[in-house]
Design a protein around this nucleic acid. Sequence first.
DNA 1: CCTTGACCTCAAGTCGACTTCACATCGCAG
DNA 2: CTGCGATGTGAAGTCGACTTGAGGTCAAGG
Lengths: 168, 168
Amino acid sequence: MELLTIGEVAARSGLAPSALRYYEAEGLVTAERTAGGARRYPRSVLRRLAFVRAAQNVGLSLPEIREALASLPEGRTPSARDWERLSRGWRDRLDEQIAALVQLRDGLSSCIGCGCLSLTSCGLSNPGDAAAAEGPGARRLSPVLRRLPPAGRAGSPAAPRGPAPGRR
Amino acid sequence: MELLTIGEVAARSGLAPSALRYYEAEGLVTAERTAGGARRYPRSVLRRLAFVRAAQNVGLSLPEIREALASLPEGRTPSARDWERLSRGWRDRLDEQIAALVQLRDGLSSCIGCGCLSLTSCGLSNPGDAAAAEGPGARRLSPVLRRLPPAGRAGSPAAPRGPAPGRR
DNA sequence: CCTTGACCTCAAGTCGACTTCACATCGCAG
DNA sequence: CTGCGATGTGAAGTCGACTTGAGGTCAAGG
């Protein structure tokens, strides 16, 4: 009645069934079982999955998301306070990431203008050769950048999350 | 004389020797060899590595970087035109990423204000349940976001690139 | 001559978030 | 009863960018 099969949840959430099982194994969601062992999800799981997605977009890892979810009293619809608390942290995270990218972009722009093609002394990259270049002057990039990507990850057209060739 | 050992390059670039070998295998850098087979790098490799770093920060994958490097006439110091061409593309990339993050952050902020805790209809996440919620109205997130992180990657204290326990 | 230490190669391991595979079951229509 | 499709499980594979490990070589120093 009010319970959804894994296939339905997959269709509605856009996640592959395998991902849902994985999330369950990781403790992000739970499901009841039929006599036969099939998963039956309450409608609220969709909200939970939406939450997971949002958190992923902010850059949280699954363990972090699990923690965040754990801080929401079981099953209950998150209160305004819950939501505010969580999203405030996320906002800070996003602000950090944005600031780092902006800084990088601006460094790039100024490099175009200044003609310092060497890259050896222009802070855009410049990791350790600062030591060779003498003096601790360089090293302008905030560490958050190092934490950021290898971003292209899903960049290649090949199946990041969208394609989900799983449901064939 | 003017040639650096892998250890020196590692120290000056901040990369582990293993990473340098890997880059060579991937065709990002080349090195001469001594009679005994040891790598000897010209000073210019540092510039090249700085370039690689910068490109990584922008979010390029190694294959993409290899391509970019290939477009720089062999060995020659990149001209102003080269640099401008490349960095313009990077800038666009960064702009995209920044825009996506800003959009996400602002969505977050507006959610705090609007009290729509359900997450089911607020575009912050909302992947496929739009179908369930009837109508194609949702799905506000630009696809660039999906390409972005799972960012936390290096987030865990455990050795992303900094620690480089390689040089022990 | 022997030991270090820096270097070499090739193979395999790591991390995160899943997917894919092989094989077993459930429930139901025909 | 048979067959199909949706599901179940556990194990192993995938991708990117490296690191780690095992086992071997080279040049210099005591």
